[in-house]
């Protein structure tokens, strides 16, 4: 019998849903074994009956629930709770569901400061009161999904790798466990490392890294060692897929493939790790000065501001 799947999106950008489609033709093969019963982005099942006739929100029962996005308002909290209630296995898909994601950068500010900027202090806006008629109130901050309900499986990434979704669903269909090995982006990255920085200061990405596209990847020096902050050492591997490049089989992390440093979108390598602290150690160990990293707190917590990693700084008395 087909496995019933329900999919929901909370405080999202939609990239995780596009990633599900990016599975491509293998998705068509999987479809024979999956029966999607609820998925607002693609399907018309409604919360309160098809003509809005019911009082209670209702999501159909499913074997597997997939939820993307963090929890930002009362409605999303309710949807998360209903999904947990109706789904035997709950998957947190993407870094917003797993850690809060980029929207959780808002956790650096009190909610009122957001309203003030958006509705009263924006260049082109005719200032007005914060809208609140017939709208779900926002929560005080952005929550990761596991701060609101229990989560069984986490597939991080911004967005994640379609291959990981296939792997997780296949494991579930076979009744096998799904785990992502605790390896770092650096463990996978083919760039050449010499365990020390080329010297000088930490640089911002205001100019090109040094690289040679005509030769195998290990002829290019590690970006961190070139002086550009790269979050590879403290970030979970999984974004890249094996490919053939200049005659060799390599797995190149996605941003490295674009000749740009990693910004940590897969989150910490293991639960409870602190990328901020670990990155400081990594930077010092190759002889660079951590004090030179601009906007450190936001940069090193960019995707993981839920779970209390980002919060408003206390206001200093003037």
């Amino acid at each position: 019998m087909a496995v019933k799947v329900a999919e929901e999106w909370l405080n999202i950008c939609g990239g995780c849903e596009v990633t599900i489609l990016d599975i491509g033709e293998p998705l068509l093969d999987l479809l024979g074994e999956l029966d999607f019963v609820h998925m607002p982005v693609l399907m018309d099942h409604k919360y309160f009956g098809q003509t809005g006739e019911k009082d209670q929100m209702e999501i159909p029962e499913a074997d597997v629930g997939i939820v993307s996005g963090g929890v930002r308002n009362e409605k999303e909290k309710q949807v998360a709770e209903e999904m947990r209630k109706k789904c035997k296995t709950l998957i947190a898909l993407g870094s917003c569901a797993c850690f809060g994601g980029i929207p959780a950068m808002a956790n650096m500010f009190p909610l009122e400061a957001l309203y003030q900027k958006v509705y009263r202090e924006s260049k082109t806006t005719d200032a007005a009161d914060t809208p609140q008629e017939n709208l779900p109130p926002l929560l005080d901050r952005v929550y990761a999904l596991d701060e609101v309900v229990d989560v069984d499986i986490r597939i991080p990434g911004c967005p994640t790798n379609p291959a990981l979704i296939v792997k997780a669903l296949t494991a579930l269909l076979k009744g096998e466990p799904f785990e992502i090995p605790e390896r770092s982006v650096c463990d996978e990255c083919p760039l050449k490392r010499e365990k020390k920085a080329a010297g000088g200061e930490i640089k911002r990405t205001l100019e090109s890294m040094e690289f040679d596209q005509s030769r195998p990847w290990d002829n290019t020096r590690c970006f961190m060692e070139q002086g550009y902050l790269c979050l590879g050492p403290v970030t979970l591997a999984g974004c890249g897929n094996k490919e053939n490049s200049n005659g060799e089989e390599v797995t190149v992390p996605r941003c490295i493939k674009g000749y740009m440093p990693c910004r940590g979108c897969f989150g910490p390598i293991r639960k409870g790790a602190s990328p901020l602290v670990d990155m400081m150690t990594a930077i010092s160990s190759i002889g660079l000065d951590v004090k030179q990293v601009p906007d450190r707190r936001a940069l090193l917590n960019r995707y993981i501001g839920g779970q209390n990693r980002l919060r408003p700084l206390p206001v200093r008395p003037k």
Binding site: N11, R72, N73, K75, P103, M105, A106, M108, F109, A113, L114, K117, V118, S122, N134, L135, P136, L138, A298
Partner: peptide, 11 residues
């Protein structure tokens, strides 16, 4: 009713 707000302009 659009029911979501994220606040990019602030953060």
């Amino acid at each position: 009713n659009v029911v979501e707000l994220r606040g990019f302009e602030k953060f």
